[in-house]
Simulated scan of single mutants.
Amino acid sequence: MSNFISEWGSTLTTGLGATLAMTAITLIVTIIIGIPLGILLVETNVNGMYPNRPLHAIFETIVNILRSLPFIILLFLILPVTQIVAGTTIGIRGVILPLVIYCAPYLARLVESSLLDVDPGIIEAYQSMGIKNSKIVFFILLREARSGITRGLTISIIGLIGATAMAGLVGAGGLGDIAYQYGFQRYQPDVMYASILILIALVQIVQSLGNWIAKKLSK
């Protein structure tokens, strides 16, 4: 064990750092895009506070198309776009765009589901008091749905960690890249298993923390 740590410890640490960096950067952009998109899916619906069928149809179509694409296919499909936007298709810079395109619609659907679970009677009560719809959305609806949104965000982060592992196939770095390069191509299963165990531990930490925060927010 000590020999393995001394030989591969720095490599695995670097890979973990790259995985965390990809996850953190993508998560920030995904939240900025995904949560507003989820709100728009709910509020532009026929039963929403800002019904707009054409706009809702556009959002629905975009989300459905992007969610139907497996990440590995999406990754290669938008390589030309990634090259234009990021200036590269490898490394952390080269994988952020496909990760965001993959995760943002997924988070939007989870946010939509959480918002739809809010009791409509609560919204009607505030509307009857003359409170503006915009204030209801941002100060009431999101507050009531915060526990569900947190659980959805937790699921999104776990999916994102899995996607970063697949991104290793295009040289994005991280634990997935280490598992592929060393564990598969160089036939060093101990390195692959170590990478997998770290990913499992990371997912367990995220899940436990997400459940704890969601439980606190539901009170």
Rank of each mutant, 00 (worst) to 15 (best):
S2D: 10
S2P: 07
S2K: 02
F4A: 02
I5K: 01
S6V: 02
S10G: 07
L12F: 08
G17I: 03
A21D: 11
A21Q: 12
V29L: 13
T30P: 10
G34F: 06
L37Y: 14
L40R: 08
V42G: 06
V42E: 09
E43G: 08
T44N: 07
V46N: 11
M49N: 06
R53W: 12
A57F: 11
I58Q: 02
F59L: 15
T61S: 15
I65Q: 09
I65E: 07
I65H: 08
I65N: 01
P70R: 09
I72K: 07
L74Y: 03
L75E: 05
L77Y: 12
T82E: 00
T82D: 02
T82P: 00
I84Y: 10
G91H: 04
G91W: 04
I92A: 05
I96H: 04
P98N: 04
P98T: 03
L99C: 01
I101V: 09
A104Q: 08
A104I: 09
Y106M: 13
L107D: 13
L107E: 04
R109S: 12
L110W: 04
E112S: 01
E112P: 01
S114N: 12
L116E: 11
L116P: 07
D117N: 14
V118C: 10
P120Q: 04
I122L: 10
I122F: 02
E124Y: 00
Q127Y: 01
S128T: 04
S128W: 01
N133V: 00
K135V: 06
I140V: 13
L142E: 05
E144F: 06
E144Q: 12
R146H: 11
I149S: 03
I149Q: 02
I149E: 01
R151F: 05
G152Q: 13
G152V: 07
T154Y: 02
T154Q: 03
I155A: 15
I157P: 06
I158P: 14
G159A: 03
I161P: 10
I161T: 03
G162N: 03
A163H: 09
A163Y: 03
A165L: 10
M166C: 09
A167L: 08
A167C: 04
L169H: 11
G174E: 08
G174L: 08
L175A: 08
L175G: 08
G176A: 11
D177H: 13
D177N: 14
I178M: 07
I178A: 12
A179C: 11
A179H: 07
A179F: 11
A179S: 15
Y180I: 14
G183T: 06
P189M: 09
D190E: 14
V191T: 00
Y193F: 14
S195M: 11
S195G: 10
V203M: 13
Q204P: 09
Q204V: 14
I213P: 09
K215M: 14
K215E: 15
K216N: 14
K219I: 14
